[in-house]
Amino acid sequence: MPHATFSTPLGTCAIAWSDAGLTRFLLPDPDRGRSDTEATPPAWVATIIERVRNHLAGDMQDFCDVPFDFGRMPAFNRSVLEATLRVKPGHTASYGEIAAAIGEAPAASRAVGGALGSNPCPLLIPCHRIVAASGNMTGFSGPGGVATKARLLALEGAQLL
């Protein structure tokens, strides 16, 4: 799978793609280095990279138009990620609200959290915008955990408790 790393105001990110769309995006990780197998991104991926840089520099971007390759993903996870794409910068939603958006009962909140925990493209598919019904920050699988989630929300101007 072709991939590349690139610098942003918050550190080095990584991105991977297929002919069908993005397959992976990794938030900055201080332990990430460049690899010998990196590819030159096609123009459409280079545009996404520039948008990520802009977003992390404070120029909010909405990535709902990005093509994602969900080909190997379970249908439930795909529906959760598609609903999460509708949560705009500066806003949050609860796990229960995402469950309701995909036609599930509030009891599916935990399964929504599981699907978001396996999000292959955090930031682009904004799982950091999904919080507990109380507004509390809950798990985040990206580097830095909940602290990174709070930092991304603050960057976007979301109202935090």
Rank of each mutant, 00 (worst) to 15 (best):
G114Q: 14
I102H: 12
I102Q: 11
M137Q: 14
C13Q: 04
G103D: 09
A107H: 09
P67H: 12
L153I: 07
V45N: 02
E156K: 04
D36I: 10
L85E: 03
R78H: 02
L116W: 08
A105G: 11
A99D: 10
L155Q: 12
A46R: 07
V131F: 10
G139P: 09
A14V: 06
G90F: 09
G21F: 05
G103N: 08
S109P: 06
L161D: 13
F6K: 03
G113T: 08
A158V: 09
H91F: 13
V87E: 07
T37D: 14
H55L: 08
P120T: 00
I48E: 00
A107I: 12
A39M: 06
E104M: 15
I125V: 14
T84R: 05
V52E: 01
Q159F: 01
I49F: 01
I98G: 10
Q159V: 13
T47F: 02
A16V: 08
P120V: 00
V80S: 06
D69T: 02
V112Q: 10
E38R: 10
V80D: 08
G113H: 12
G114M: 11
A4K: 03
H128I: 03
R86L: 15
S109V: 06
H3L: 14
A93C: 13
K149E: 04
M60V: 07
T23Y: 02
E97R: 13
P143M: 08
A158W: 09
G21R: 03
P122N: 00
I102G: 07
G58H: 04
A111T: 10
W17R: 05
T84F: 02
G90V: 14
L56V: 08
L124P: 08
A57L: 10
